[in-house]
Design a protein around this nucleic acid. Sequence first.
DNA 1: ATTAGAAACCGAATGGCGTACGGTATTCGT
DNA 2: ACGAATACCGTACGCCATTCGGTTTCTAAT
Lengths: 205, 205
Amino acid sequence: MAGRGGYAKGIAKREEILLTALDVIARHGYRGASVKEIADAVGLSQAGLLHHFDSKEHLFVEVLRRRDELDTATALAAFAERGVGGALDAFVDVMRSNAEVPGLVLLYSALAVEAADPAHAAHAYFRERRGMFRAALSGGIRQMQADGDVDAALDPDTLATAIHALADGLQVHSLIERDLDMARVIEHVVGAMSPRDASEEPSTP
Amino acid sequence: MAGRGGYAKGIAKREEILLTALDVIARHGYRGASVKEIADAVGLSQAGLLHHFDSKEHLFVEVLRRRDELDTATALAAFAERGVGGALDAFVDVMRSNAEVPGLVLLYSALAVEAADPAHAAHAYFRERRGMFRAALSGGIRQMQADGDVDAALDPDTLATAIHALADGLQVHSLIERDLDMARVIEHVVGAMSPRDASEEPSTP
DNA sequence: ATTAGAAACCGAATGGCGTACGGTATTCGT
DNA sequence: ACGAATACCGTACGCCATTCGGTTTCTAAT
């Protein structure tokens, strides 16, 4: 069991662990990010670290959950400021900035695959996350279709599924091909989805 | 070291191991596919199994290499028969049939992430494979642009990168969302890339 | 048909892994 | 200042991939 909702010291330590875990992953790779390595990095024994989290898996999932909170806040703010088109831009921006957090893409991709096992702590996380994400994305696409920014002939749900998969696939590829500009690829593809008569070529209006 | 190029018995056993490995992955998941499990399934000790392959990683990479040989043969045959457009169809077909091999998508996705580690046996494999695959794909796209089947305003290299990432991302997603029709999504996206004046509907409904 | 050497295979051991358990020390509301 | 909840540790367990030395089996050359 994890010592949840405890003393100030414990809360601070838990926070430190979450931050340090990403650091260790960035430096040692996902395989090298053992409980011992992370425990050493925060000055705890292995048992001491596992006191704060149910398991190593749960710790990692918690790291992603924290990141999600930041990201959705950013996206919602962009939506409030700039509307639907701004939200899609914000999505690309979030992806761009997350790609610069060392270890984060590695952790996300690794867990996304491990989550295939229904017994894995990340299974439920990814299931619900994908539902939420795709619902929001397809909603945004529908709005953009109404605004004439996306071809109305395309199916919003299928498109949302595709963009989400594209984003995750690019992350996996970027692990090896480190100069891969994910945001640029996505922007290019999304640009191809806009109605041809409206934009693309600046011919006489 | 591996007992390569040996007696008939060894060659047969190695083949059996490669087939059985996929079976074990399908039944026990990637995490459950330990050397012991696979060794038991083929009637060997762990040491006996490792005699045939340099490591567990190398064994898994070999499974993927074999599959690639089959797939490229299929794709080349389709190209010879049906030309460039047929090759893209063949690519989708190959994806569709591979998705029905239990364990294969799981193995591929798991290794694709583990290959982030330069020391991993799959690192070189995925590096070279992506180069080949994208070169072929972008070449095909260029041809289809010349034929008027793909919008000429799109960048072939970027598009090839996107489609490849999309395919891999869909595979990861399908691990959890098992009713996800990957081929359908890809066909829908590819259909959206065709010139608008040419076809009214983006793809077959 | 024999034989020498390569290949196939095994038992046991090694070091690392995540985690469960029992116990001690620290914290902090009361 | 008390005591229960929390923080933390040493130890141990079972599983993992891999290594090593040794034995059996195969087969090509004699």
